[in-house]
Structure formats: structure tokens, C-alpha cells
Design a protein around this nucleic acid. Structure first.
Lengths: 201, 201
DNA sequence: CTTGCAATTGACCGTTCGGTCAACTACGCT
DNA sequence: AGCGTAGTTGACCGAACGGTCAATTGCAAG
């Protein structure tokens, strides 16, 4: 229990924070190492490349977002539609707190990476596709619950879940561009009302 | 009428295309010059810095998007709500065509830059804020028309316009991440139904 | 014909980039 | 005690980065 894989985790945490608050390309391996108190040679003992590190970062962020946003927001103590509203509120709070630390609102870490790297790196693009699919699946669960509870009916659940994800990503983009977390609350009220109907067959 | 400011425009066009299809940081000044058939010294005769170039690119993209998407989509030959639907269709077509050229779908050039640079460069962030405000204003006009035509009522027009912009940006992000333009059509049907009500006072 | 300036050229700057490597240290296993 | 190996170190690599500059060209106005 001395340090073990502590170094590796320190590298991931440093890189995660730096890249989230700036961008993938703007943060160099040297800066990551400096912040993690690790020498560059040591970095390459754990990661064969910066790209490989970014995959590890995405996994790490997945856990962070799960714990800090998805799980608290989607706890089953509220009706499904109320959970969706709480999700927006939780996201707002997450962004607001992060903003007081960084002085800027940082938006969605996955969205940031997706738009920066999707056209340049197919492996990262595909990984992020999986992350989005995971979040969409969470929304689908809530929508299924809502349907079972009679809160909604006659909707295309997967498409609606994806539309909700798109909307929230767009909202975070607007908030980041305006550097104003209150945009999330202002636009958040439309989130739970998004619907896509099944195709008439 | 020989070349005049032709060189400058060639630099902007090259940089615009390269950066749009990859990212700001991933495209160097040297590569831009090579594609524009211009020497680096000449580049810095027209632009004091890469950042200054990016501002010119944004202005240029604004014109492109205006001509290719906004104007055709919002022509007044349809009812306001139909225009919104046509806007989605126009965007889909724009992305699909661009995708056959690049082999990838590239999403929204403003959104791409916003997420990459908003936290690192306040000047660019502010410029993009203005671009988004301009698009939002176009949506507001259409919504006003829709209200006047009795197609909608009792909505917060600015907030709804901003929500629509957020949604479409999110949809383009999903399409880019999936590298699949049909996402735009699949999710597009929810676009014109987004509503934000005024606060009860 | 000359003067002046915008445009162009190509060599060059220091810095940083992602990545490599041989040597060394520390520690668990037998 | 001796060995193997995971972890660490610091020096180093070629390439690319954004940006500079003095010298030259081309053209338009006086």
C-alpha cells in the first residue's frame, strides 16, 4: 500500500485535469509530467503514447461523471421525469463548482474531445462513441421507467434518448462559449420535454 | 483585377478548409502556406499571428454558412415552422456533401472551434459568442414570424431560439462522433418542436 | 524615369513537440 | 545472499512549432 500504481493514477489525474480545462493538443506530455511530479521516461513506462493515455483518461472521466452526475441524478427516489429534471440541475451544479475552481466553465469533457479529435483519430472517436452510447442507454432506462409509469407514451425511446443527449451537449457548448453556467438552467427546462415519435408504419 | 488581395483570400480559404476538417491546433502555419502556395513570410505580411488568422476564418465561415445554409433554409416561401424543418434538411445536405469530399462528417465549424478554444483564448471565444448570437437572432426572427402566423404562442422566443441552436449543435456533435450524417435526419424531427415557456410572473 | 511602398522570398530563430534509451534503484521471490 | 524485474531517472533525438527579418521584386503614381 506504499504507492503501487499510484504513479500511473497521478499521471492520469494530471492529464485529465489539464486537458479538460484546455484541450488535448494544447497540453504537452512535459506539462503533464511536471504536474504529476513524474519524469517523462517514467510516463512512457506506463503509456506507449499520448494517444493511449487519452484512452485511459476517457475511462477515468467516465467513472467521475458516473459518480458525480449520473448516479446521484438518476436515483430512483423520484419519478422518472423528475429524475431528468434533477439531471439537469446536477449538471448545472457540477459545472458551476468546476467553474469556481478554474475560473471558466469547461463543458462536457467528452464533447470537448469529440469535436477536437473525432476527425483526426478514429480510435478516440470510436471510444467516445461508446461513451455517448453509455449515457444514451441511461436515458433510455429512465424513459422506459417513465413509459411504465405512464408519464409518457408513444415515443421512440432510443431516438429520444439520443436527442436528449444531443441537447444537453449543445447546452453545455453554449454555456462554455458564453462562459456562463446559468445558461444550463435557462435552457434546461426544455430537456425533459424532448420527444421523438416512432415512424408511422 | 490581377490578383489584388487574392493571396490573402487564398490563405484564408486554405486555413479554413484544413482547420475545419481537422482542428485549430493540428494545423500548422507551414501546412496552411503550402496548400495556399504562399511562403511563410508572406503569410505574416497579411496576418500578425495565427490567432488573428483564425478571426478572419470565422468571418469567412460566417459568410459561407449564411449563403449555403441560412439564406436558402429561411427563404419566406414556406410557413415559419416549415422553414425550421427545411433548415434541418439543408444542414443535413450540407454535411452529407462535405462528408463525401472529406470522407468524414465535420460538424459545425463554429462548434468545433468553440469547444477547442473557448477556455484558452478569450478573444476567439467572444467572437464565437457573437456568431452564435447571430444565428440565434435568425431563429428568433423565424419564431416571431411563427407567432405572428399563429403557428405558436406563449413561448420565450429568445430562450427557445437559443435552445434550438444548442440542440442543432448537439445533433451535429453526435453526427460527427458517429461519423454518420443520417443522425441529423433521425434527430432532426425534434428540432422544430423545442419550446421554452416564459416564466410565470 | 524615378521614387515609394506593398508584396514576396527564403533563410533563420529559439522553443517545444512526442518519443527513446541506457543506466540505475528498489524491492519481492527463492 | 542473489536474482529478476518493475519503476525511475536525466540526457537526448529529429521534427515541427509560431514567428522574424533583411533583401528583393513588381507595380503604380508623380
Amino acid at each position: 500500500m506504499t504507492n503501487e500504481q499510484d504513479t500511473r493514477q497521478r499521471i492520469i489525474a494530471s492529464a485529465r485535469d489539464l486537458i479538460y480545462s484546455r484541450s488535448y493538443a494544447d497540453v504537452g506530455v512535459a506539462e503533464i509530467c511536471e504536474r504529476a511530479q513524474v519524469k517523462k521516461g517514467s510516463f512512457y513506462h506506463f503509456f506507449p503514447s499520448k494517444q493511449e493515455l487519452s484512452l485511459a483518461i476517457i475511462d477515468d472521466l467516465r467513472v467521475v461523471m458516473e459518480d458525480r452526475v449520473l448516479i446521484p441524478a438518476f436515483a430512483r427516489d423520484l419519478t422518472p421525469l423528475k429524475r431528468l429534471q434533477r439531471y439537469v440541475e446536477t449538471l448545472y451544479e457540477f459545472q458551476r463548482v468546476a467553474a469556481t475552481t478554474d475560473g471558466r466553465i469547461l463543458g462536457c469533457p467528452f464533447g470537448n474531445l469529440a469535436l477536437e479529435l473525432a476527425t483526426s483519430d478514429d480510435i478516440i472517436r470510436h471510444k467516445l462513441e461508446g461513451v455517448f452510447a453509455g449515457i444514451q442507454a441511461r436515458f433510455e432506462n429512465v424513459l422506459s421507467d417513465a413509459e411504465a409509469a405512464g408519464e409518457i407514451n408513444d415515443i421512440d425511446i432510443p431516438a429520444t434518448a439520443q436527442a436528449m443527449l444531443a441537447y444537453i451537449e449543445g447546452v453545455l457548448m453554449m454555456a462554455k462559449t458564453a462562459n456562463d453556467p446559468t445558461v444550463i438552467r435557462r435552457l434546461g427546462s426544455a430537456f425533459a420535454n424532448i420527444r421523438i415519435q416512432p415512424l408511422a408504419s
